[in-house]
């Protein structure tokens, strides 16, 4: 583990109602994530990767156990406090990019800063810097529909990184990309992790991603079956 723990997951269970019974997506999960980690939660579909990511991202709460993110217990947060936690400390990258279609690249990246209430001058500097990191400074006026999949995901990375969050949660970020774009994206995220010390946690089963990880947590049927440090390329 790197440095101080910023995420602690203790004995977490998560169940969902299913028909007349319920489906348990996570069982007795205990994990700690430190600052500056580049970690993957790996496992087949239905193993509970996204559920765990959602709990860490305060988008969901455990059925049992507790998850502490940036010193705050997710279970105890109100809807507003959870939104505030996400706003200040967390960045999200989604498999389908989730860019807002009516906004251009600049406006999409600007969104988290607007929510933070950053003054416009600082905002402009931060947006241009973030777009510079992902190599899209020449596309600020483009709408998502005018970009390729790889470019869209780079915009999503810029949007997640623009506020320099402590933690970035990426759910299958390369699933919709070809090999070339996947490597480009991963190298970008790796560079940002090294440069800014941001903790990256991926939910993935993509071998291309796994090759970049420094730590791999394997999930199977909602249980952690392995937690290992990795030798990166």
């Amino acid at each position: 583990m790197d440095k101080a723990a910023i995420i602690t997951v203790e004995n977490v269970y998560k169940s969902f109602p299913m028909g007349t019974g319920e489906f348990t997506a996570l069982k007795e999960v205990n994990l700690t994530f430190g600052e500056g980690e580049f970690t993957g939660i790996v496992g087949p579909s239905g193993s509970g990767k996204t559920t765990l990511l959602n709990i860490i991202g305060s988008l969901d709460v455990p059925t049992k156990g507790k998850a502490i993110v940036m010193g705050r217990n997710i279970n105890d947060l109100t809807q507003k406090e959870a939104a505030d936690l996400r706003n200040r400390y967390l960045g999200f990258i989604f498999q389908t990019y989730n860019l807002l279609p009516v906004y251009n690249v600049y406006e999409n990246v600007e969104l988290p800063l607007l929510l933070l209430g950053m003054p416009s001058k600082e905002r402009d500097t931060a947006i241009r810097q973030a777009l510079d990191w992902v190599g899209l400074s020449d596309k600020i006026e483009s709408r998502p529909a005018q970009l390729s999949g790889g470019e869209c995901q780079r915009v999503a990375i810029a949007r997640a990184m623009v506020k320099k969050p402590k933690i970035v949660l990426a759910d299958e970020p390369t699933a919709n990309l070809d090999a070339k774009n996947s490597h480009h994206i991963l190298r970008t995220m790796e560079a940002l992790n090294r440069e800014l010390g941001t903790t990256f946690i991926f939910a993935t089963h993509d071998e291309k991603v796994i090759r970049y990880l420094r730590r791999k947590v394997s999930l199977e049927d909602g249980k952690v079956v392995a937690d290992q440090s990795m030798k990166t390329q």
Binding site: Q79, K80, N98, L111, L116
Partner: peptide
């Protein structure tokens, strides 16, 4: 709906 989810993930409240 996805847009709403994204905005919530970015830190927007339901209000």
């Amino acid at each position: 709906r996805k847009e709403m989810g994204t905005l919530m993930a970015l830190g927007m409240t339901r209000g």
